[in-house]
């Protein structure tokens, strides 16, 4: 088996609060192969976005810091890399599309200038060539009459169009990994479908691996090859997407899957209430006590769950879960 493109090993990210380092991501390991799409799911505040930022060396510091572990990109540890090297990696090798297309473009430059500038800095293209490349990228991400639109300022475009521009900027250097942090959360559902079609096309054309961060299980099922579920800064389940939707093992995962409202529910005067997981994600500060972090919210909690934190145990090849119940059933 060849080495994966990206391999995260025992990553711990902590934020300084007063005199303590509070870990927000703990002992996180995962791999990403070339051309693969990995979904990272979980509620708000469980460490998805900060994990993504850490891959680019962009954990806000201070107060944040990678305190342990390795991020191996093609064998090179990015945690140890200097700022200069990271700037080469950013955009060139790994790039990111953010959640907020409305505010993620620089308001004082035209979109053509912004894409061209990126191409110029990374490839050393001439101005004319960089501009041509920008127009080409705009047409590639499906912006109509790109020649004219390239002269537009961000405020002249809709949210969906701006997100396309963000994607164009992220892809202009043909990175090996594209991280999309809730790329469609701020967009209409119809636009969302278009953006995901675009991702699929681009993956095919550019061969980029995609890390898709979302809390939308429907999106995950449609878009990804493999899914990793995070809860309170830890990975609690991982597996191929089909297994994840059909047969979720961790009670948190099955909770997430049950939370999807179904349109096929028959209309009635007394509708079934939507499923919800009671409670909220615990604050990172409260995670130092023993036991499974999900235990207080778990419907299937057992005495053992409150005392010991289950480790990740493989269930099948490529499939693992951190839950005492599953592990006892398996044993």
């Amino acid at each position: 088996m060849t080495a994966p493109l990206l391999s995260v090993r025992n990553l711990e990210i902590a934020f300084r609060s007063g005199r303590d380092d509070i870990p927000v991501v703990r002992d996180l390991s995962f791999d990403l192969g070339a051309g693969e799409t990995l979904g990272i799911v979980g509620e708000s505040g469980c460490g998805k976005s900060i994990t993504a930022l850490s891959l680019l060396g962009l954990v806000p510091s201070p107060p944040g810091r990678v305190t342990r572990g390795q991020i191996l990109f093609q064998g090179e540890d990015l945690v140890q890399a200097g700022e200069r090297r990271l700037n080469e990696v950013r955009g060139n090798e790994i790039s990111m599309v953010f959640q907020e297309p409305m505010t993620s473009l620089n308001p004082v430059y035209t979109i053509g200038e912004q894409i061209a500038e990126t191409a110029r800095v990374h490839f050393g293209l001439s101005r004319a060539k960089a501009w041509a490349r920008a127009v080409e990228m705009l047409s590639l991400v499906g912006i109509p009459s790109p020649n004219r639109r390239a002269h537009d300022y961000p405020h002249q475009l809709s949210g969906g169009m701006r997100q396309r521009v963000m994607i164009a900027i992220a892809l202009v250097c043909e990175p090996k990994i594209l991280i999309a942090d809730e790329p469609t959360t701020a967009l209409d559902v119809t636009v969302q479908a278009q953006i995901f079609d675009l991702f699929n096309d681009l993956r095919r054309d550019f061969g980029a691996a995609i890390i898709l961060i979302t809390h939308d299980i429907g999106v995950v099922a449609q878009m990804t090859d493999r899914v990793m579920v995070m809860y309170a800064g830890r990975k609690i389940e991982e597996g191929p997407v089909a297994d994840f939707v059909r047969d979720p093992r961790h009670p948190y995962t099955s909770g997430l899957v049950s939370c999807i409202p179904r349109l096929t529910m028959p209309p009635s005067d007394d509708p079934e209430p939507l499923f919800e997981i009671p409670g909220v994600v615990p604050a990172p500060r409260d995670l130092n006590r023993p036991g499974c972090p999900f235990a207080p919210r778990c419907a299937r909690v057992m005495p053992r769950c409150r005392d010991e934190n289950p480790g990740l145990e493989p269930l099948a090849p490529g499939r693992m879960v951190a839950c005492w119940q599953e592990q006892e059933v398996a044993a």
Partner: peptide, 28 residues
Amino acid sequence: EMDFVKAERSIGAANGRLIWKVILPNAA
């Protein structure tokens, strides 16, 4: 702290570029 500065950083803009070409025109 604005999103587009974060976005510029994520595509490899170094500090000098962020100061003079990204933030300064917006502060102008």
